[in-house]
Design a protein around this nucleic acid. Structure first.
Lengths: 258, 258
DNA sequence: AGCTATAGCC
DNA sequence: GGCTATAGCT
């Protein structure tokens, strides 16, 4: 049996918001350590890895491993009904045919209870190898989101060039081009505004703007995003949860398709 | 001659907003006591009863009974033009071919005057019997609206089950089901947040979500809604005006059509 | 009242 | 699939 209680429904709300535009159906794997998802987006380009550790919950127990096959759009409908500040409890039997979601108003006697039918989703469990990266950028997630949105107006590709102490986002379009350069920056009072660049080798990679646009749906989850890159390898975009993460792996475009 | 002056145009604005999606054309009956409407919505399911008593006006006079056949969409266009805080005067001759609407800014000399052509609408005056009800629920109108919207994402039917001190709104859909339970609750400081349940017999009725969605357009009119129910009878949903009301009568679905 | 999210339209 | 119009939320 799974029973996980979030102090605030908003955490799961943001997670689903971040994933629902990339993937329609996916398996949520529940174990004693928490809930995890590995999925490939519907266009088969973006790899998504979610981990909500038990520590993200107010209370959490899961006696046996359970796989919950969820339709993201239906789940989203239900989650939107709950108030963001409601307590949210997820409940599933050991061999469930439904996931129960219980929203409780903290102030008074109002309980909303939903049951979502589960799907049998044929989806291999993806093993994601630990990778080594040549460059790591930590920056404000909202700033990264704005850069991606801005550059997308110019071109379908976004080039990321990292040198010793700066990151350049570059976009070459038909009617013009644009670039944004940000430098390492430490704000001791507002650490969430800082930019940190850790570099072993310079990086020059190009990504599909469309997929970055999906990735930045995660912005409300965390004030910072961590971008890890390595030449000719998928880049990792990571948003930290209070206890866990939401990660996206995106392969760069190769020269002949840029 | 009719001459009715609202201190604020917003009252009529909200009334028209609440009705315009249900009924395209309707007769406004003006008498010395005020203005009233009895209409059936375009799908012939929902009965609408409006009463704006003379007391809702700053000044009101109506020497003879006048019927104003109004096209709601045109009226709405005109009313949207006026500022919500403007004073609004309705003027009509004894045998009018138009309704005049005069908006006056309170602070400065700005007068907007509109004339709306009347329609000859063939519509029987409906006599609505006083009914006896087994259960009466008073609750915040915004909360009722949210429940109706939320449940509508799951199913086309909404079941209302009332027991001694709680109301359960229940919805059974294809991909899942949901319910919201609220209990009697008195907030002495914010009385508009209170929930009051008066019960003679338990209630279990099902309504078409589509019509409830029309009814909740009235939410801005009043902080509370009163729902009166009786087995196998149309339910009454009432929003109080400062002096008068907007009421909707909706027949429950019967078992064979649920 | 302004902003954001959604639903219908092109 | 993107955009525009509408409606809900802060």
């Amino acid at each position: 049996m799974l029973e996980g209680k979030f102090d605030e429904a908003s955490l799961l709300k943001k997670v689903i918001d971040a994933m629902k535009d990339s993937v329609k159906l996916c398996n949520f794997n529940c174990t004693e350590n928490g809930i995890s998802v590995q999925a490939i987006d519907d266009s088969r380009v973006l790899l998504i890895s979610l981990l909500i550790e038990a520590g993200s919950f107010e209370d959490y127990r899961c006696d046996r491993n359970i796989v919950l096959g969820l339709e993201m759009e239906s789940l989203n409908k239900i989650i939107k009904n709950g108030n963001a500040s409601d307590m949210l409890t997820l409940v599933a039997e050991d061999s469930p045919d439904a996931l129960n979601l219980i929203f409780e108003d903290k102030r008074r006697d109002r309980i909303a209870e939903y049951s979502l039918k589960l799907m049998d989703i044929d989806q291999d469990f993806l093993k994601i190898e630990d990778m080594k990266f040549d460059a790591v950028v930590n920056m404000p997630s909202a700033e990264f989101a704005k850069i991606c949105r801005d550059m997308k107006t110019l071109s379908e590709s976004l080039q990321i060039i990292i040198t010793k102490d700066s990151v350049k986002f570059n976009s070459e379009g038909d009617f013009g081009s644009g670039s944004v350069v940000i430098k390492s920056f430490t704000d001791l009072e507002k650490t969430e505004e800082s930019v940190r660049i850790t570099l072993e080798k310079p990086i020059n990679l190009t990504f599909g703007a469309k997929y970055l646009n999906d990735i930045i749906k995660s912005t409300p989850l965390a004030s910072q995003v961590t971008i890890k890159l390595c030449d000719k390898q998928p880049a990792l975009f990571e948003y930290q949860l209070p206890s866990g993460y939401l990660r996206f792996y995106l392969a760069p475009k190769f020269e002949d398709e840029e």
